[in-house]
Design a protein around this nucleic acid. Sequence first.
DNA 1: CTGTTAGCGCCTTCAC
DNA 2: GTGAAGGCGCTAACAG
Lengths: 331, 331
Amino acid sequence: MIKNNRVTLRDIAEKTGYTVNTVSRALHHKPDISQKTVAYINAVADEMGYINDNIASSMRTGRTGTIAVILADITNPLFAILVRETEQLVSAYGYSVLILNTNEDRELERRAIKSALGKKVDGFILCPCPECHDNLEFLKKTGKPYILLGRRVGEHPSVILDDVKSGYLATSYLAEHYRRSRIVFINGLLSISCAADRLTGYRSALSDCGLPYREEMVFTIPTKAGTIGRVFDELAGRGIEYDAIFAFSDLFAYAAINLLSERGKKVPEDIPVVGIDHLRKRLFYMPPLDSVGAADTRMSEAAAELLMKAIRDGSPACTDRLCLDVKLFPV
Amino acid sequence: MIKNNRVTLRDIAEKTGYTVNTVSRALHHKPDISQKTVAYINAVADEMGYINDNIASSMRTGRTGTIAVILADITNPLFAILVRETEQLVSAYGYSVLILNTNEDRELERRAIKSALGKKVDGFILCPCPECHDNLEFLKKTGKPYILLGRRVGEHPSVILDDVKSGYLATSYLAEHYRRSRIVFINGLLSISCAADRLTGYRSALSDCGLPYREEMVFTIPTKAGTIGRVFDELAGRGIEYDAIFAFSDLFAYAAINLLSERGKKVPEDIPVVGIDHLRKRLFYMPPLDSVGAADTRMSEAAAELLMKAIRDGSPACTDRLCLDVKLFPV
DNA sequence: CTGTTAGCGCCTTCAC
DNA sequence: GTGAAGGCGCTAACAG
């Protein structure tokens, strides 16, 4: 068995002659310890290489200084950005982030929530998977603060972008700026609020531009590799003419552009493509792309602030529901 | 103050009439409890919604079931992939992952290590930042198992790709397949082992192909946004002719392609570009790109396996140093 | 200002 | 097979 050679409060207490508890308070700079003692104890602790045992602290205080971020897949750049922004914000509060991937699967999401509860996180940020109602109700019952990010579900607290407007802006940009009338919409699954809302925006924009809504132009596919190829197969197989593409996400848009290139089509000359998320704002290496994204506020920072507030206040859950403005970022 | 309404062992004990300790052993399926009792207690625990308190368990056992993964930036897709693969592998062992970003900064790396120690992780995987010797020595002294990923430093245990070969393959592909002789190398900082090794491979390939090594064709830049633009400014400003680009990473390669496009150059017709990491293998939306990547084994899985083994054996650190084979993946 | 006491929830050791 | 006792390292409450 390995001997745990970690320095504990007791070690410092023995060395300094104070009690464990005085040492603890000195290290926390509590007001009821003399300046001299504080300085002395801190110096000794430093010298001995003391590091506070978070586990033991949590045991007493009930707080772990960790929040869970639960989402589909960290290799999706959008989620990576959300995580990074969240992490940077909460670290200012001394918090760190436990990341759990659901792969958009309900069962995995449930397990992730339980796992995080077992690790006694102080709060949750989650981008819920489809069909997640049970999971969210379960989470709500725990009384832990939580907030949804990017997708709303019923009355659960959430911070989202204005997805109806996103769909509207993207579609009308294709119609007006590029003067297109046959706009294919490659959408995500409608059980995700943002997909449903973007469809609403798409239809509304078509209507305002005097264009017909045609069901065969709209595809709903899961956020996985490969699935997007079938859209083009189907378009070709059924001989559907189109002159523009509105993609559910920048990822879909880039994947579509790759496939269009393979078929000898140029973007945007032959087929303009508009995406959503504006990844380029953060990821310098992404190719140019017309995209709709948050206008000012960062979604994840807003969510993280609300969560931190709820944790500090000891409120069982934040009750806010925020919908942030978006705008189109042309290439 | 919020009442903590979590179900504890004691609650189950009271309900079943057994002692806390019998309940604990039943839930762990220890052999010295009767089948009937085990079944009964588990049923009650389930019904009550019991979730093991990892914090309290860790307190006793000294293990947290968490490993730290410390790297530059999770929004870099390469790192995101490494994290995801690591997570998937260690989750099979019941482990989870704490991610800490260093932004390639020594001080942040040190803080990350300390933070992870405070959270009592059972082991470390890190992609060390430049000038990290002190940090690694510090980590080594803690006695916790650790392993470096993607970059080697001195004698510290590591799993890396064969970076010399990567540099060689990329360069010779440009020279032989594309028949180019003036190959610009946009490299990372030489204090990172893979940059140094890839430079060795680059030089060696030039030499084998009968091409001269020209210092003004080699640039070393940090892995940050914007810096790559200056390479092209400098090439233009100094009137340096070039007909191919070897990029330190796929990200650099994509960024270079964007900049070449802006300047009206076509890839690969005018200027072929070869990168490293082969991101497309995992990220379906990335544009086509010639790239060098791991031949078979996944680097992060190898590292994670070694770390898990070290943790299970209770050995203070894994001592292996692994260098995995690479190959070129043409578009 | 500092010391004493108590206990967070769990698991390990030993007894019965 | 099961129960009783002890303690992981820390911090909160209360003395003095």
